[in-house]
């Protein structure tokens, strides 16, 4: 089981924002889709630190990121 960030893309797309992507410590882990204007997580690379949640919920009050449990292979 791994604790990883999950982006609610429909919510995120409303903001044209990208801030969490700029503060994740891991390379190419939180990425950004220009087409849908939304952040997305490369789950294998996520270490579950929740810094992105701090950015999206605590700083920006946008609440688009939820931490979820995944199993290997999900």
């Amino acid at each position: 089981m791994y604790f990883v960030a999950h982006i609610h893309e429909n919510e995120c797309a409303k903001y044209n924002c990208k801030q969490c992507v700029l503060f994740c410590p891991e390379p190419n882990c939180l990425n950004y889709k220009e087409s849908g204007h939304t952040a997305w997580v490369w789950t294998d690379r996520c270490k579950g630190c929740e810094i992105c949640v701090y950015v999206c919920s605590d700083l920006l009050k946008r609440n688009c990121i939820e931490m979820v449990m995944v199993k290997a292979g999900d």
Binding site: V21, L22, P27, N28, N31, Y32, R45, K47, C49, I51
Partner: peptide, 16 residues
């Protein structure tokens, strides 16, 4: 960032 392939890869530094 988040829209190109970064030079640094996955590594074993701690979460956060």
């Amino acid at each position: 960032l988040g829209q190109f392939k970064e030079l640094v890869e996955e590594h074993p530094m701690c979460a956060g």
